[in-house]
Simulated assay, not measured.
Amino acid sequence: MSASYALALKAARDAAGAQHYPQGALYVVATPIGNLADISLRALHVLEIADAIACEDTRHTQSLLRACGLERPAGSLLPLHQHNEAEAAQQVVRRLAAGERVAYASDAGTPAISDPGARLVAAVRAAGLRVVPLPGASSVTAVLSVAGAHAGPAEAGFVFAGFLPSKAGERATAVEGLAREPRAVVLLEAPHRIGDLAAALAALGPRELTVGRELTKQFEQIATVACADLPAWLAADPQRSRGEFALVLHPSSAARPADDGQALLALLLEELPVKSAVRIAAQASGAPRNALYQAALRLRGDAS
């Protein structure tokens, strides 16, 4: 452990130690997605005081703990991954029912989003026991924050799609669905499959895609390209196909239905005269003023 993490542990005890950490609770702990400095003070404190730590890979979590200066006996680490989650969750429930504090950490980022953990949380809640989130690093929010993909009200919100199917036909069908999705879409992909994903997304043509590669790590790379250009962008440098990927498919104006302004017009008519409501609705939506005026007369006639 470096001196900096000795200071971090002291800071964690000072900053988080006075807070209440109920017994018999599951603590869902976000861990760094690459840069170890992204671990939170509260995460350090909970990983230190927990009676047991359930983890996706005990070796990976033990390495993280040691890097942060936390020495835990091997018996306090419980393997809980996609192949044993249902059974291991019951073991965690029994420990919680006995009054223990149990932390859960996946290999990187926030558990139970694309990593294991959702079944564990569901089992704990079904047993009437408490689940406490410890927020922190997430590739989903990290890539969204630098994509600039949903900047206006028309593009509000995003969809998390995660990993698309591995089979070519199912992946192509999923991409067809993305073509009809007007909001930003967050995708995840592994290095050995990024070429196949790029080939499938190329069908979306000029729609923009922000690629986040090796986020928070030394060789982090962020680029925005047209979907049609993604295969060529990857092929231009072998390094671009290495590492873990988080991607944002930008909103598609073609996928959004044209705004005829009538929804806004109906709201404005509740407070304003017809001419004022029509003028504002036309300016906001770009819809023809004459069409909006006729619609306003119909709405007023229906109301009366």
Rank of each mutant, 00 (worst) to 15 (best):
301 G>M: 09
121 V>H: 00
143 V>A: 02
146 V>E: 07
246 A>E: 00
269 L>E: 12
219 F>G: 01
199 A>G: 12
41 L>V: 04
91 Q>W: 03
174 A>F: 11
63 S>H: 11
278 V>M: 10
222 I>T: 14
150 H>N: 15
296 A>V: 08
268 L>G: 06
277 A>P: 13
295 A>M: 04
186 V>M: 05
164 L>V: 00
10 K>P: 01
20 H>D: 15
33 I>M: 06
31 T>A: 06
65 L>N: 13
175 V>D: 13
146 V>P: 09
172 A>P: 09
29 V>I: 15
273 P>E: 14
102 V>N: 09
4 S>M: 08
65 L>Q: 12
106 S>D: 07
207 R>L: 06
101 R>P: 05
132 V>F: 03
242 R>S: 05
90 Q>N: 04
270 E>A: 15
138 S>L: 04
154 A>N: 08
162 G>I: 01
281 A>I: 08
107 D>S: 13
45 H>A: 05
134 L>W: 03
1 M>Y: 06
48 E>K: 04
100 E>Y: 00
225 V>G: 02
39 I>N: 12
73 P>K: 13
183 R>L: 00
15 A>M: 12
3 A>K: 12
27 Y>A: 08
208 E>Y: 05
270 E>R: 15
265 L>W: 07
290 N>S: 13
270 E>I: 01
89 A>D: 01
266 A>H: 13
60 H>T: 14
168 A>N: 11
284 A>S: 14
214 E>N: 07
181 E>I: 01
190 A>G: 13
264 L>K: 07
259 D>K: 07
174 A>D: 14
207 R>K: 05
160 F>G: 04
66 R>T: 02
213 R>T: 04
42 R>E: 09
104 Y>W: 06
278 V>A: 08
287 A>L: 04
215 L>S: 08
282 A>H: 10
37 A>P: 01
104 Y>V: 00
103 A>Q: 11
286 G>M: 10
163 F>K: 09
291 A>C: 01
67 A>R: 14
23 Q>G: 15
118 A>K: 03
45 H>N: 12
203 A>I: 09
278 V>Q: 11
80 L>I: 00
129 L>A: 08
219 F>D: 05
147 A>T: 03
24 G>S: 04
280 I>G: 02
105 A>Q: 03
237 D>W: 02
35 N>Q: 02
137 A>M: 02
40 S>P: 14
109 G>R: 08
67 A>P: 10
226 A>M: 05
262 Q>M: 06
78 L>D: 03
16 A>R: 07
154 A>I: 00
